[in-house]
Design a binder for these strands. Structure first.
Lengths: 220, 220
DNA sequence: TAGATTGTTAATCGATTAACAATC
DNA sequence: TAGATTGTTAATCGATTAACAATC
């Protein structure tokens, strides 16, 4: 481990993990920086640099064993250590995450969801109990929660974030599309700004009547 | 307009737009690179550089008029020109977007959604008709569709993308979490990899027992 | 062993920051 | 006018790419 790993590198690690998981499923045992370069559209040089931030995963003359490299990157990302998460807001988006997003694949255990709808409170979705939003603060006193997933209406986002942060939640995964300007101390904020993503796509589409291909996918 | 605008700059434009929209709503009329710097956590220098890629929006000695700057950035992103979009897959995620995401704010008009569920086909959600997925290819022959939003199960993603691309769809907003490896020609792919976002958050949370604050939000 | 491929150092490139003359 | 702030050029910094010795 060098010194301080740049945000650019960290945001590429999940891509490596994703790709390697796919390769492992496809039965590919061995790879190399040149092979990954072709598959991922990064230079072999960059791949070797990136991987070396975390330690020598490879073997000279051979390359990388897919399963080992995958495990090492998962390790670097901390996936093996399970963190707890709760979903705040069990509307369509919250339910989409509860039902379809494999939190456990990424080292998270969903322990509860919160909603204000009395018809929902007391039920379960995908095995996760739906609790009354009014009890969120109380819940935090009794349970350790590492991450709060904000999938509630924008106007409640700020309050929810402040309650979460005050209650010891260390990270907020914010889907509300607003930037929460409250001072949340050490709480880490990860914003999912779908509008940024769509506007970027729009930019590239409108830029060309029918010319080349300026963008190729992205992370997140 | 300089020459080729870097992807970094383009991915910052939606952030400016978002912030300026908020400022306009708050009744703020005038701003400056120094003011935006404080609000957004970028340097004033970078802000001036970014804005100048698209033209002199400011006025020396005064700064920027919020409404003008907002309009200019929206213009640069192409928001005023409306593109058409369809949602493929009206499950929880598709419905979340149909109900809560303000496509029109970003220059898109949702013209249809597609699903395989017979109970859904023929109904409307938020004024958007739900059509039979089997009719998607057919629909494309009769209607111009600029963007297909993929919110269907992973296993159908590749086929949907190929049908879309073959039918003249120019951009794909991919929520399925898989990388679609088919050759889609000129079709631009914008991937929303939620797992990348969560893994990044996890990295920053696990990295510290309780130390400083390495990450501060991000775009998307 | 010879060939292949890493780990790592050095060179290049691009992006960010600083500085300042232009000008409102 | 004097003060403020841009637009833009130059300097710095960091990230990517290239090169190659180490070694499996």
């Amino acid at each position: 481990m060098k010194y301080r790993i740049s945000a650019n590198v960290i945001r590429r690690l999940p891509r490596y993990l994703r790709r390697l998981t796919g390769m492992e499923k496809a039965g590919i045992v061995r790879t190399s920086s040149a092979d990954l370069s072709r598959r991922m559209g990064l230079t072999a040089s960059q791949i070797r640099q990136d991987l070396n931030c975390f330690g020598g995963f490879g073997q000279q003359g051979y390359g990388y064993r897919v399963s080992d490299l995958k495990a090492s990157i998962a390790e670097a990302l901390g996936v093996p250590e399970t963190l707890t998460a709760v979903v705040i807001g069990a509307g369509n988006l919250g339910r989409a995450l509860l039902a379809n997003f494999r939190f456990s694949d990424y080292g998270f255990a969903l322990t509860a969801a919160f909603d204000t709808d009395p018809a929902l409170v007391g039920t379960e979705i995908s095995g996760v109990p739906i609790l009354d939003s009014a009890r969120f603060g109380e819940y935090l006193k009794e349970h350790r929660v590492d991450v709060a997933v904000l999938t509630l209406p924008k106007k409640f986002a700020r309050d929810a974030a402040m309650t979460a942060s005050a209650g010891g939640v260390r990270g907020i995964w914010n889907f509300t599309g607003i930037d929460i300007d409250a001072d949340l101390g050490d709480t880490v904020m990860e914003n999912v700004h779908l509008s940024d993503s769509l506007l970027t796509l729009g930019y590239y589409l409108r830029g060309r009547t029918d010319s080349g291909s300026p963008a190729r996918g992205n992370g997140i």
